[in-house]
Design a protein around this nucleic acid. Structure first.
Length: 394
DNA sequence: TACACATTACGATTCGAACA
DNA sequence: TGTTCGAATCGTAATGTGTA
C-alpha cells in the first residue's frame, strides 16, 4: 500500500513550468511521472538517494585539489534569482518519507520550501546528481574550493505545526490497544472532521502506520498490535503472507504468490506448480477476480524462475528454485526464511494458547494455519538433498 | 502570501457477471 | 476455465478553502 502525500508549495512559476515541460519531454506525459520525478529531485537535493557518500568523496577530491570555489556564487545567484520571481502553486504526489526528509533537511534554510524545491528541480533538470558530479569533477581543474561553500543560514523558518499530524495523533490517542475497523473510521470522522472516502482512507493508513497495528489473522476487521500477530504467526512470515489479501496491493499479491509457491517447492527438490484456480483459492483466499488472477500469473511469470504452462484448459504456475536462486538470491532468501519459520510456528501457537483466553478464536487461527501450512515439509529442500547451489544462498 | 488540508475530477486499474 | 466488457474502485493532478 503506497504512502504518498502531496507536495503543495508556491514555487517560482518559470522554474516549475520548465520542470513540467522537462517531465513531459522525458516521458511523453505528466500523469504519473510528475510526482516520481519531483520525488527524485527532492531526494537528490537532500542526499537521501543513497549516493551522498559518493558525492562526499568527490567533494574531498575537489577540496584536495585546493582550487578556488565558485559554487557559492552559483548558489547565491540561483537563490536570489528564484526569490524574486513570480510563484505558482506546485503540486505533486511524493512518498511521505521523502517529503518529511526534505523538510527536515532544509528547515534551517531561509528560503521558503517552494524556492528550495525550485532549486532541487533545477538541479535535477541539469542532470541531477550525476550531472552535478560531472561538473564538480570538471571544476577540480580550476575552482574546487567553491564546493565547500553552503548558503545555509541559521534562521528559524518558523514552520507551523502540521495540523494533519496533530489530528492523526489525536485519533491514535483515542483508540485502545486493539480496535475494530468500524471504531477506527468513526474516530477518524469525529476527530478529523472528514467524511470523504479518500480522506478517511488516508487517515486510516497514517493511524495504522503510527500505531504499528495489523489486522488480526482470524478477523481482518480487528486491528491488533503487530507483536500479537508476530506471536501468532511468527516474525519470519513475510508481511505479504500474513496480511489478509484484501489489504495487499497488486504488487504485494504477486509477491505473496511467489513466496507461497517457493515455500511449497523447497521440500519438493525446488520444483512445484499450482493451477490458476488454486492460486486464487489457496494463495489469494478467493479475494481477486479470476481475470485479475490471470494477470497476476502473467506478471509473476516475468520473474526468473517462474513460468506459466497451459495443460489442457488449465494454466499452471511453476517455480524452479534453482533459477530463482541464480537470478534473484534476495527473493530466495525470503522464501527460505519463510520456510524456516514453519519449524517454530507450532511453539508460537502453543504459547498463544496458554497465555490468551481467546477460545474459539484461537481454534480459528490454528485451523487457518493448518490450511496455510498444508504443505509443511518433513524434509527441508535446503537441508536434505536439495541442490547444492541453493545451499550456498545463505 | 505561504502553507496545509479537504475535496473534486479524471484516467488507470481491478472486479465480477456473463458468456464461449 | 479463460475471456470480455461494463461497473466500481483507486491513484494522482488540480482546485477550493482556512489559517497564521
Amino acid at each position: 500500500m503506497s504512502d504518498r502525500v502531496r507536495v503543495d508549495w508556491y514555487v517560482p512559476t518559470a522554474e516549475w513550468e520548465q520542470f513540467r515541460e522537462y517531465v513531459e519531454s522525458e516521458y511523453g506525459e505528466i500523469e504519473g511521472y510528475l510526482g516520481r520525478e519531483t520525488e527524485r529531485a527532492m531526494q537528490q537535493y537532500v542526499d537521501t538517494d543513497g549516493y551522498g557518500s559518493v558525492e562526499e568523496r568527490v567533494n574531498r577530491l575537489v577540496r584536495a585539489a585546493g582550487r578556488r570555489p565558485d559554487d557559492l556564487d552559483e548558489e547565491k545567484n540561483l537563490s536570489s534569482d528564484l526569490d524574486r520571481s513570480e510563484t505558482t502553486r506546485a503540486y505533486a504526489s511524493v512518498e511521505s518519507e521523502v517529503k518529511d526528509e526534505f523538510r527536515e533537511a532544509v528547515k534551517d534554510e531561509s528560503d521558503p520550501y517552494g524556492v528550495i524545491l525550485a532549486k532541487a528541480v533545477r538541479e535535477y533538470r541539469g542532470g541531477g546528481r550525476a550531472g552535478r558530479l560531472e561538473r564538480k569533477l570538471d571544476r577540480v581543474l580550476d575552482d574546487a574550493e567553491a564546493l565547500l561553500a553552503t548558503a545555509s543560514e541559521d534562521t528559524d523558518t518558523g514552520l507551523r505545526k502540521n495540523g494533519r499530524e496533530v489530528k492523526t495523533v489525536a485519533i491514535c490517542n483515542q483508540l485502545d490497544e486493539q480496535f475494530t475497523d468500524k471504531e477506527l473510521v468513526g474516530t477518524i470522522q469525529d476527530t478529523a472532521g472528514v467524511s470523504s472516502a479518500p480522506s478517511v482512507r488516508q487517515y486510516r493508513e497514517e493511524v495504522v502506520e503510527r500505531l504499528d497495528v495489523e489486522p488480526h489473522p482470524a478477523n481482518s476487521d480487528l486491528w491488533v498490535p503487530r507483536e500479537v500477530v508476530d506471536d501468532l504467526l511468527g516474525e519470519g512470515v513475510p508481511r505479504e503472507c500474513r496480511m489478509p489479501v484484501e489489504y495487499l496491493d497488486r504488487e504485494q499479491r504477486e509477491e505473496r504468490v511467489m513466496l507461497e509457491l517457493g515455500r511449497r517447492a523447497i521440500p519438493r527438490d525446488g520444483n512445484d506448480s499450482v493451477s490458476a484456480t488454486d492460486v486464487r483459492t489457496d494463495l489469494l483466499d478467493d479475494v481477486p477476480a479470476r481475470s485479475t488472477v490471470a494477470d497476476i500469473l502473467g506478471a509473476v511469470a516475468r520473474t526468473d524462475g517462474y513460468t506459466v504452462h497451459e495443460t489442457g484448459d488449465t494454466a499452471r504456475l511453476r517455480v524452479d528454485l534453482n533459477t530463482v536462486n541464480a537470478y534473484n538470491p534476495e527473493l530466495m532468501g525470503r522464501i527460505r526464511a519463510y520456510y524456516d519459520e514453519g519449524s517454530t510456528r507450532d511453539a508460537s501457537l502453543t504459547s498463544y494458547n496458554e497465555s490468551e483466553d481467546s477460545g474459539d478464536e484461537t481454534d480459528d487461527i490454528a485451523a487457518e494455519w493448518d490450511a496455510l501450512d498444508s504443505a509443511s515439509p518433513d524434509a527441508a529442500f535446503a537441508t536434505d538433498g536439495g541442490p547444492d547451489d541453493l545451499e550456498d544462498s545463505d
